[in-house]
Amino acid sequence: MLSIKNLHASVDDKEILKGLSLEVKAGEVHAIMGPNGSGKSTLGNVLAGREAYEVTEGEILLDGKDLLELSPENRAREGVFLAFQYPVEIPGVSNINFLKTALNEIRAYKGLPPLEAREFLNRVKEKQKLVEFDAKLANRSLNEGFSGGEKKRNEIFQLAMLEPKLGILDETDSGLDIDALRIVARGVNQLRSQENAFIVITHYQRLLEYIVPDFVHVLYKGRIVRSGTKELALELEEKGYDWIKETVDAEKAV
């Protein structure tokens, strides 16, 4: 589904991703871990198409389509969804109105008619239940005055509404209490299918107990330096990143 080859990306002429490669197949969940500042959010932003990030080398294909050619909105319409690490507040834009606009623009892109009001509301209700997202929040301005956890939950609510092909969760677990974490994980698990895939960026093994990944990757200094199965996450939890940093830095020094 997603194929990233030798990706180099920089911000303000500072190279952050330095030759990252990753293959994600439909039906898979990939976890990406790594120390602060290693480039995890940068990867998410580059996938979503944030203009400040300049791709200097490499390619990203989504089901064979060149993502780098597409505007952020067309990437979203092709099925890329980034649940932001820091969702922005947009006072005055109602959550529901925003979702309706987004959903219908995505449908129009696919040649589908807009959802009827009732269908839309049914879907809202169903997905609200799925992620136990308070109806009151859904009717408020987008993220305005939401607590950190509510914002994260809203990201997952949007994900559930838009049903993307590729969901990228950037530290969705941070700021969530235990119950919210379980609810979000359960939502994601119910959305998992053979047609979609997830990239889950996290610092904590805890989330991966709920959303069990097929693969775990360690990102360090802009590259994936270790890949393994869910046991790798356990090992990281136990030992920290130092042992990886040391071996990688040693390899580099050679």
Partner: peptide, 30 residues
Amino acid sequence: FDNEALFYLRARGISEAQARVLLVHAFAFD
């Protein structure tokens, strides 16, 4: 224009033009 907000909306599939409309509405909302 708040470019962060503009990107957020576009990242959900909303065209740039429509995103601008939403943001101006939001600005005028008060």
